[in-house]
Computed example of a mutant assay.
Amino acid sequence: MASITFKGNPVTLLGSEVKVGDKAPNFTVLANDLSPVTLDSSKGQVRLISVVPSIDTGVCDAQTRRFNEAASSLDNVQILTVSVDLPFAQKRWCGAAGIDKVQTLSDHRDLSFGEAYGVAIQELRLLARAVFVIDSNDTVTYVEYVSEATDHPNYEAAIEAAKAAN
């Protein structure tokens, strides 16, 4: 398992670590209108999945904005941001921030995504910061578990991986 800290303190991740070459695990999360979203909801597309602890914090805000900006240069790539924030809070934040190219999804109900991708933090019931790229055949082509949850991911490497997965 990836070794992750949150504000310098080690945390326990639930679930299985995902590796490049794995078949992407399925999950069920909620869209802002409370409808269920699964991996199959975007079948046949390249997906860049940005995982954040909470959309209302500085690094998570910056991460979501960065991938929203990158979306215009990524043809045929769906960008999903997953957190345990309630769908209503995600919708409010997106409206206030002008986020219109990234789909925010909530894993608050049962941590389906968090456990499937090994990012559920047991001690905090938050998700660890990570980025995954999944190609149109549902194969994982890029994985970054950010070792310190309050640090930024490698945006350029993730964006290049999404372009290469097309």
Rank of each mutant, 00 (worst) to 15 (best):
M1C: 03
M1Y: 07
A2D: 04
A2V: 13
T5E: 15
K7F: 11
V11L: 08
T12I: 09
L14F: 01
S16P: 00
S16I: 07
E17Y: 11
V20T: 13
V20Q: 11
P25L: 12
N26V: 08
F27G: 02
F27Y: 12
T28K: 15
L30E: 14
N32S: 07
N32Q: 14
D33F: 03
L34I: 07
P36C: 03
V37L: 11
V37D: 00
L39W: 01
L39D: 02
D40S: 13
G44Y: 05
R47M: 10
S50P: 00
S50N: 14
S50V: 14
V51C: 06
V51I: 11
V52R: 00
V52P: 05
V52N: 09
V52Y: 09
P53G: 07
S54Q: 08
I55G: 08
D56Y: 01
G58L: 03
G58W: 00
G58M: 03
V59H: 03
D61I: 07
A62R: 04
F67V: 15
F67K: 01
A70N: 02
A70V: 05
A70G: 03
S72W: 07
S72N: 13
L74Q: 05
V77K: 11
Q78D: 04
Q78V: 14
Q78M: 08
L80M: 01
T81D: 12
T81K: 00
T81F: 01
V82P: 03
V82S: 07
S83C: 01
S83W: 01
S83V: 06
V84Q: 08
V84F: 02
D85I: 01
L86S: 13
F88I: 13
F88G: 04
K91G: 07
W93P: 03
C94G: 06
A96Y: 05
I99C: 03
D100S: 15
K101G: 06
K101W: 10
T104P: 02
L105C: 04
L105Q: 06
D107N: 06
D107A: 06
D107M: 02
H108A: 13
S112T: 11
S112I: 07
F113K: 11
G114M: 03
G114Y: 02
A116I: 12
Y117R: 13
G118H: 12
V119K: 08
I121M: 14
I121N: 06
Q122G: 04
R125A: 11
R125E: 10
L126Q: 10
L126D: 07
L126T: 05
L127P: 04
L127H: 05
L127Q: 05
A128K: 08
A130P: 00
F132G: 09
V133N: 08
I134V: 14
D138W: 01
D138F: 01
Y142A: 08
V143G: 06
V143A: 07
A149T: 14
A149M: 08
T150C: 00
P153L: 10
N154C: 09
Y155R: 05
A158W: 04
I159M: 04
A161F: 02
A165M: 03
N166T: 13
